[in-house]
């Protein structure tokens, strides 16, 4: 189901809409939350909070200001960061975990889609280390280009194009 079809169901308050919404995006958002919040139980709480916020505020989503996925992604990031801040008082500017999303592969974590996605995880292992760092900061942690360029000691102008090249590699792999 595409985002557009999902929105049709949501606006119609069709009872299947919430199930679809959850099926389509809960995994993606949960991995983002887990990158930011390193505690599984708290991450589950945040996931709950995020979906409650999405559903209650769905009327405030405005198609002319961006993708629906982007809107819910921001809710997930912001809710996680708020949670982190509320717990940690001596926080230096961003104060996000230093390890990247690949740590989610640690064998202590039981990944949901082990069967379907072994491929993509293998692919990530082959992905250039720079790509993992860039996607981690920009997508998972929501760094601005400026912040990412400082963190990675890369020129500001190349962050955007490098990120595009990384996503293109991923798309070629996924044939999207």
């Amino acid at each position: 189901m595409s985002q557009e079809e999902l929105l049709v169901l949501i606006y119609k308050k069709d009872e299947r809409a919430f199930t679809h919404l959850y099926d389509m995006y809960s995994k993606s958002l949960f991995s983002v939350i887990n990158v930011l919040i390193r505690n599984r139980e708290e991450a589950e709480d945040v996931l709950q909070e995020v979906f409650v916020k999405i559903w209650k505020n769905i009327d405030s989503y405005n198609e002319s200001k961006g993708r629906f996925y982007t809107w819910i992604l921001n809710i997930a990031r912001n809710t996680s960061i708020d949670k982190l801040r509320s717990k940690d008082f001596n926080n230096s500017q961003k104060n996000l975990p230093s390890d990247n999303f690949v740590h989610l592969l640690d064998d202590s974590n039981k990944l949901v889609n082990r069967i379907d996605t072994i491929g993509i995880q293998e692919f990530v292992k082959k992905l250039k280390p720079k790509c993992i760092e860039i996607i981690d900061l920009l997508f998972f942690k929501g760094y601005t280009q400026q912040e990412a360029s400082e963190e990675l000691a890369m020129p500001l102008g190349t962050i955007k194009t490098q990120n595009r090249n990384c996503i293109n590699d991923l798309r070629n792999y996924l044939k999207i």
Binding site: K27, L29, V52, I120
Partner: peptide, 29 residues
């Protein structure tokens, strides 16, 4: 296409979360 790629990438890294969580959210709503 970009969205599909990044959703696929991030979804594949999702740790297991319990079905109970989904039910809890539905109950809360």
């Amino acid at each position: 296409s970009i969205e599909k790629a990044i959703v696929a990438l991030s979804s594949s890294f999702s740790p297991f979360h319990s079905v109970a969580n989904f039910e809890k959210i539905k109950a809360r709503l």
